[in-house]
């Protein structure tokens, strides 16, 4: 085998090894979303605590944070304090709305969870899972930010803690509330 062919073979093997290595260390939960910049699907559902119907359309023109969660989800418990903190930070802004979406859960479990860990914002029940599928959700927690024009501007898969929290509040929500649109994704 000539040196040229040996070099070609070595390069092919190196390329394959790089792909394998990248796949080995990549986050299997990270699936690129196709929803950024698209219209946020409208939905209607009962409030977990009161049973009253909540619709996304009623918050038109506001910056909306949607947080998908479930009582059986460990990472949802991990992020719960930060989520409450985030609401505390923006709740006085009339252009900001925060909604929880309870996903694949029993109503009693969801209600008990909210009583135990506390909540300061409404939560919609996704009874049939249609809402989650409309938002391309494949696990919880997942968080979406919708801008004043009703477009999905940001999606994050996993708990909102640490740097993720800082990035979400300072680089996504605050600029949107100050009408400085950004397009970011997880």
């Amino acid at each position: 085998m000539t040196k040229g062919w040996q070099l070609t073979l070595a390069l092919i093997l190196l390329g394959l090894f790089t792909l394998f290595y990248q796949g080995l260390w990549g986050d299997p939960r990270h699936i690129p979303t196709v929803l950024i910049g698209t219209d946020a699907p409208n939905f209607e559902g009962p409030d977990v605590e009161t049973g009253q119907t909540i619709s996304l359309a009623q918050f038109k023109g506001k910056v909306i944070l949607l947080n998908f969660w479930a009582s059986w989800c460990y990472e949802c418990k991990v992020e719960h304090e930060s989520i409450l903190q985030l609401h505390q930070l923006f709740k006085d802004n009339p252009d900001f709305v925060m909604l929880g979406v309870n996903y694949q859960d029993k109503l009693s479990d969801a209600q008990q969870y909210l009583q135990q860990y506390g909540t300061t914002f409404p939560h919609v029940r996704d009874i049939k899972g249609q809402l989650a599928i409309d938002y391309g959700v494949y696990g919880v927690p997942e968080t979406f930010v919708i801008d004043q024009q009703g477009k999905i501007r940001h999606k994050w898969v996993g708990p909102i803690t640490g740097m993720v929290y800082t990035n979400l509040t300072q680089k996504v929500i605050a600029p949107l509330l100050n009408s400085q649109p950004t397009t970011t994704t997880s």
Partner: peptide, 9 residues
């Protein structure tokens, strides 16, 4: 519809 929600994946 599913493609528009989840992409090629």
């Amino acid at each position: 519809y599913f493609l528009s929600r989840y992409g090629d994946y």
